[in-house]
Amino acid sequence: MNFPGMKSIYLFEMARFYRTISQSLFSPVLSTVLYFIVFGSAIGSRIQEVDGVSYGAFIVPGLIMLSVLTQSISNASFGIYFPKFLGSIYELHTAPISYLEIVIGYVGAAATKSIIIGLVILATASLFVPLHIQHFPAMIAFLVLTSISFSLFGFIIGLWSKNFEQLQLVPLLVITPLVFLGGSFYSISMLPPFWQTVTLFNPVVYLISGFRWSFYGTSDVSLGLSLAMIFLFLITCLGVIWWTFKTGFKIKD
């Protein structure tokens, strides 16, 4: 294994995170604060409790997931797309580094950033609502798994994108709606039966449900199903990346 190579990519990507700290960290934190003000205070004052949890506390896992998912995708996709755009990706192709090591470097950095952002949002949320995490190790495991899975997904988007528009397309048109409709701000049991069934086709439901279970011990779907869906997504992303590199699709002439 080329450990210095992986480390170089990882540190390079993390350097971008520190360089653009206001954009990387403060922006998602500010968004979360705004969500708390709008949803937690304005709407939450009328909803009171969901599944025995105050509304303000109920939306915390969903808000963290919202940022983790979008940040994982945008960081990983930008990380690999920008060298493509600049042309400096030639360095990766001509270096004695395997595709797996490249993925570990970029996805590892993107996931690290997401985990940091997730934890900062959690800390921010604790300033607004009293939080008690019932299954802390499970919460960390969900956070890490989700960050890695969606960073892999972002990496695929970055590899396949031909321009900045395509880079933004999936996060904007697919991920954000899925997160909003995935039970971030409500329990799916609050929906009519038909929409509950439709919602079950949204993979984000399982992420948020599992993550919320780690906080409050209650979930919309079973814990096993949530874990199975995350692993399925993770394996699918790994498979797509493996195929992309093996065939040289969108990478090599």
Binding site: K7, F12, R19, G87, E91, P96
Partner: peptide, 27 residues
């Protein structure tokens, strides 16, 4: 390899760019 087109990370310093490249080569 010295490529035909100038392809450099614009925000990276010269020294850090060299360290990055050397790292990619496992050194």
């Amino acid at each position: 390899l010295v490529p035909q087109e100038i392809a450099l990370e614009p925000f990276q310093s010269v020294m850090n760019g060299m360290k990055f490249t050397r790292g990619l080569f496992g050194k």
